[in-house]
Amino acid sequence: MFYDSYIMFKRCMRKTMRSPESIILALVVPVVMMVMFGFVFGGIADLGEISYINFIVPGIIIQCVVNGSQSTSFSVYNDMSTGIIDRFRSMAISKSAFITGHVTMSVIRSVVITAATIGGAFVIGFRPEAGLADWLIASGVLFLFIIAVTWLTVIIGLISPDNESINGFAFLFMIFTFLSSAFAPTETFPTVLRIFANNQPMTPVINTLRGLMLGFELGNDLWIALAWCVGLIVVGFLLAVKIYKSKLTR
């Protein structure tokens, strides 16, 4: 099984390297967002002692994970909608290798893109006050978040009937990033939006990263973020496997 998954991962890797545009694009978007938001709204945003750049970087990182993972939906969808999946299925190889190959590739991609985005943030003026322990915890939370998002994008790739639907889901993800604490404190939102923003998974993850990097009190956010991530990973994994199997036994 490990051998089959490894070969499948190699295949995804090769295909990703063939279209570096998707990685470059996934990098350009968060950098542009940082510059745009940081410099355009930075002047009017009054957050007391924190600079606006410092404030939005955690949100930008989350947005970059979400954006960067979309390509996983497309590659899963493309494999499922062509004859390729039938060829794999008619071979004596592990059934799950196909999915694990995509997931591994997606996680590695997201880690690389995220690291590069954080690097870009430093160039633009991000100055965190985090110590080594803070960075380690933040990386752990981020890693879990990346895995959770990956399973969601795999599910989207499995259930989407066409490319347009995947774009629709991508838009939905974008709404979630904006209706969170990414670009403004949720206290400034109207009531309905605030209730939504405070109770969706991205807000606690962003608050945790922000707290760790800028040295705020974390409160319950770390635990809520971990619960969301682990919950999404478990549910996402089980759901993806179930959908994949049901597609196979049609």
């Binding site: 004859g83 390729i84 039938d86 060829r87 071979m91 004596a92």
Partner: peptide, 20 residues
């Protein structure tokens, strides 16, 4: 699995990877 080891399938739609 024994059957899969003995056969191969060429489906109606070409099962080839475009970018390889």
């Amino acid at each position: 699995d024994d059957v899969r080891r003995s056969i191969s399938l060429t489906g109606q739609y070409a099962a080839v990877d475009e970018v390889m």
